[in-house]
């Protein structure tokens, strides 16, 4: 069985934990309980004929005062870099998170998620500016969450 470690990285309160919860349990909680340290979840998944176990790392969010410890990033095949599409500063910080991830895992693949898309109006959603390959997701509604993890898994396994 292939096991692949993937990370969820991003500023605090962007919805990393919620995206994992939606992906694994298909549930959502409105309350904000911040993550400290890391929590690992597992998910079986097959891409074509390849069976794989994703080891998903829910990493605590970065704050202006605190960077993510490198020990969490080691050995990851991929990462979902998350921003809150309603908070400009979390999108500005995307680049910083990507750089950090790539510095530790030069061959790692990543996908960018702009979460909380349910808070945008349909017009805003339509005209939303993203980096190439970015995905507008909603952990609350479940929009594009499976697609998000699936895309990354495919990239990693190809």
């Amino acid at each position: 069985m292939i096991r692949k470690k993937i990370l969820l990285l991003g500023d605090f309160n962007v919805g990393k934990t919620s995206l994992i919860k939606r992906y694994i349990d298909n549930t959502f909680d409105d309350k904000y309980l911040t993550t400290i340290g890391v929590k690992i979840s597992k998910k079986f998944l097959s891409v074509g004929s390849i069976e794989c176990e994703l080891i998903i790392w829910d990493v605590e969010g970065a704050t202006p005062q605190k960077r993510i410890p490198e020990q969490y990033l080691v050995g990851a095949s991929g990462a979902i870099i998350v921003a809150d599409c309603n908070r400009e500063e979390t999108m500005v910080n995307l680049e910083e998170h990507i750089k950090h991830f790539k510095a530790v895992n030069p061959n790692g693949k990543y996908v960018v998620a702009y979460n909380k898309s349910d808070l945008l109006t349909p017009q805003q959603r339509e005209h939303f500016q993203m980096v190439p390959g970015g995905v507008l997701t909603s952990a609350k509604k479940g929009d594009h969450v499976n697609q998000l993890f699936g895309t990354l898994a495919k990239e990693i396994l190809s």
């Binding site: 692949k4 470690k5 890391v38 080891i55 605590e60 969490y72 050995g75």
Partner: peptide, 22 residues
């Protein structure tokens, strides 16, 4: 998972150790 390289180095040398916190 992902720490295979590091485990390798820990086997090789008793001075090597790694800590994963929290």
């Amino acid at each position: 998972v992902g720490y295979e390289d590091r485990i390798e180095t820990v086997l090789e040398d008793e001075k090597n150790r790694y800590v994963l916190e929290t």
